Computed example of a mutant assay.
Amino acid sequence: MKKPNNTYHHGDLRASLLREAAALLRDSGIDGLSLRRLSERVGVSRTALYHHFSDKHALLCALAADGFAQLDALMQPLSPASNAPPAERYTAFAKQYLDYATKNPSLYGLMFGHTLWRDKLADDSLKQIAYESFRHHLAAVKRWQEAGILPKEQDSLRLTQVTWGTLHGLAQLVIDGVYADSTHLEDICQCVGQLFCGMRTAKPQ
């Protein structure tokens, strides 16, 4: 066991705890992740750890929230500042989304799984960032509908649910081993981009 390390600043310690907790989650799953193991792995006292996470549930919510923050950063290819064609931008987004999900299957499962959502156990911070991420996708869909890139006649919310649900379903199929041949992902992502954006010719706004 490492000796407690009191040289961390609080902000640095929280980032370190989340990074090591994500590694524990990846290696041992939710059941193998505990505050005791985390404090030993990072080399800090329980008191220092409890300053950031009151219990395991708080840690899991923080981990999921951090995952959504990373996922939200992938929305950049959908930004109106990009000059790339819409289908190309959405294809790039799809690639990054699937790459993130399939390289972080345990974290991705925590972010979207029943552990935190089925019994309404997600805390306010997690719900806020998860919904904010969805709103960013919704805003992009609305912009592209207005530009004629996506069908204007479709309800924006439902269209966002369909596009996000498609990516989530593809990611889960890869994670579960149904789509075991990852060499097909390039073509799948291009198909997604063409399906949602390739039928329209208007320039993005």
Rank of each mutant, 00 (worst) to 15 (best):
H10D: 13
R19G: 05
A22R: 12
L24N: 07
D27W: 05
S28D: 15
S28W: 13
L33P: 14
R36A: 15
R37L: 05
L38G: 03
V42T: 00
S45D: 09
A48W: 13
Y50F: 03
H51W: 12
H52G: 04
F53Y: 09
D55E: 04
L59Q: 00
A64G: 02
F68P: 02
L71P: 04
L71E: 03
D72T: 01
A73G: 10
P77R: 02
P80F: 11
A81D: 04
S82G: 06
A84D: 06
E88W: 08
T91V: 10
A94W: 08
L98R: 02
D99S: 15
T102C: 01
N104F: 03
P105A: 10
P105D: 08
L107K: 03
M111H: 07
M111E: 01
H114W: 13
D119T: 15
A122I: 02
I129L: 07
I129S: 11
E132I: 14
S133H: 12
H137Q: 12
A140I: 01
A140F: 02
S156W: 06
L157V: 15
T160M: 04
T163V: 08
T163G: 09
W164V: 02
W164R: 04
H168N: 09
G169C: 02
A171N: 14
V174F: 11
I175H: 04
D181C: 03
D181R: 05
S182K: 02
S182M: 00
T183N: 07
H184P: 01
E186F: 04
E186S: 02
I188W: 09
C189M: 06
G193V: 04
F196W: 05
M199C: 05
T201K: 14
A202M: 12
P204H: 13
Q205V: 07
Q205Y: 06
Q205T: 07
